[in-house]
């Protein structure tokens, strides 16, 4: 066919990371993480200890689950769900109340998942019915939720000695018990998102809303499904949170937001939607959870860590921008 020789890849740009294919960014991220670990280990050999491993993996657990929830929203074109802190505390409060009532673990988990899903559904319903920007809606619902939670309670914690209290303090195979659900979630979600029909449609909606609609994919349905699922994952995170965090107040989850967003960006999830590999959240969350620990080993005063957190977000955004410019 006359066409064949002329329409070819000449105008196109090749793969971004030659030789590594799609796994290039993942390997780069893992490499940066390993360099950080190696450098700190050289400076302070006692960094490479089981204690450090526990400290880092505990920190990863809650952020990791929230990052999956956040990434699902971003990939499907919802940009960001800023209502995660309120959703987490709300689900956490339900979990605590169920624990106080002496309910067994499965009931606590179901209660948390259902509460989180309901929170996500409320957000999605407002977004879909009012046709509003998800960022604005979730910013507002987070604010409202926080204010309402302050009216509901001041401090809450799961009772000492209950199964969930133990769950937040024990280790399993040398790692925190609360770490395993996070790792499993990243694995499973990362596998299913690009390989299922619903997942691919969610990605399509994020990549090009008009195109998805023109191909018969329903935007409202996708949005409601994603926000509800994402909310349920926030509920899961709340189980890990109340299990491990002890007494908390309505504002106690706010500090997670920045880390979660930075993790999502650093993992290469496009905030514009349509692109993102959930598996990369593992090195991304791991890297960002390791940094504060290394700072302590390098002897930086604790107030510096807050400053550093801000820098990390800037770094993540800059890294993403660099990647986007290099991308075809």
């Amino acid at each position: 066919m006359a066409l064949a020789p002329t329409i070819d890849g000449k105008d196109a740009v090749g793969p971004r990371w030659p030789g590594l294919g799609a796994w290039g960014p993942a390997l780069a991220l893992v490499a940066v993480w390993l360099v950080l670990i190696a450098a700190t280990g050289l400076y302070r050999p006692d960094f490479l200890s089981h204690q450090t491993l526990l400290a880092v993996t505990f920190t990863m657990s809650i952020v990791g689950v929230l990052a999956v929830a956040q990434a699902l929203v971003a990939i499907s074109g919802g940009f960001l769900d800023l209502s995660q802190p309120s959703g987490l505390i709300l689900s956490g409060l339900v979990t605590v109340r169920l624990a106080e009532a002496g309910m067994p673990m499965p009931v606590l988990i179901l209660g948390a998942l259902a509460t989180g899903a309901a929170w996500g559904l409320v957000n999605a319903t407002i977004i879909v019915l009012a046709k509003l920007n998800p960022v604005i809606v979730t910013l507002a619902t987070n604010f409202i939720g926080l204010a309402a939670l302050f009216l509901l309670f001041q401090l809450a914690q799961v009772p000492r000695g209950t199964a969930i209290h133990e769950f937040g303090r024990t280790s399993l195979l040398g790692l925190p018990a609360i770490w395993w659900p996070m790792a499993a979630l990243i694995l499973v979600a990362g596998f299913f998102l690009p390989r299922t029909r619903v997942g691919r449609r969610a990605i399509a909606v994020g990549g090009n809303r008009q195109a998805a609609r023109a191909r018969g994919i329903s935007l409202p349905r996708t949005r409601i499904a994603i926000f509800t699922l994402s909310g349920a994952l926030v509920g899961l995170a709340s189980v890990l949170f109340v299990a491990s965090s002890g007494p908390f107040n309505p504002g106690s989850a706010n500090f997670l937001q920045l880390n979660v967003i930075a993790s999502v960006i650093l993992a290469g999830v496009s905030l514009a939607g349509g692109r993102g590999n959930l598996w990369l959240l593992f090195p991304s969350v791991g890297f960002l959870s390791t940094i504060p620990t290394t700072l302590v080993f390098f002897g930086l005063a604790s107030d510096w860590q807050l400053i550093f957190q801000g820098f990390i977000l800037v770094f993540a955004v800059a890294f993403d921008g660099y990647r986007a410019r290099r991308a075809p």
Binding site: G246, P247, T293
Partner: peptide, 24 residues
């Protein structure tokens, strides 16, 4: 030694773990 707890049992937890890891 000291660490930044932000006066909150839940919020201060990661920094507290880091501090303990650094003093094994």
């Amino acid at each position: 030694v000291s660490f930044e707890s932000q006066g909150d049992a839940a919020v201060g937890l990661p920094a507290a773990r880091d501090l303990l890891a650094a003093h094994p």
